[in-house]
Amino acid sequence: MAITSPEKRVWWNEPLHRPEVIWITIAFLWGLLMFGMMVYWHVAGRQNLSNEAYKVFPEKFAEKVEDMVAKYKVREEGATKIPVVRPPPGSDVYVLSRLWEWWPILELEKGATYRLHLSSMDWQHGFSLQPVNINIQVHPGYDLVLSITPDKAGEYTIVCNEFCGIGHHQMIGKIHVVDKK
């Protein structure tokens, strides 16, 4: 029994049963396939998180965001008058997170590719883009750069999904994806 010492003292020489051997083989091969799937997706898949990230001082990151807002602001939105910016396709765009807002609101062109920068001014936040359901962790001191290509027009919401204190559940932002003019 499993609660007593093995009946046969030399248990490690007992032959294996066929059903077990088959199952272990299948499970091992399945593991290899799942491992290969992640590698394959890096080669052929279109959804991979970028490996590009930089250490950054929060105030330096904020300066870049302010620059973008000054250049490309088109209007304001919401009760707190968050600026909406529309940078040209292919450019570097920034979303800054802080207690408790995502700043500013981006307006992107459908089908165009942008270099999106994410960083936090204070604590960790969770960039959870809905309803596409893309979820990325945002750290203070790290500038994560990923190339995104929004492929459907519509209003997207950034929900914070990393707990960040008492205002966490009020922390939402927007990204608009619009058709090319």
């Binding site: 992640m38 997706w41 898949g45 991979n48 359901n133 979820n135």
Partner: peptide, 12 residues
């Protein structure tokens, strides 16, 4: 725990 699929589930 699959690297890319995690993008749709992380912190949800």
């Amino acid at each position: 725990g699959t690297e890319q699929i995690n993008l749709m589930m992380h912190n949800t």
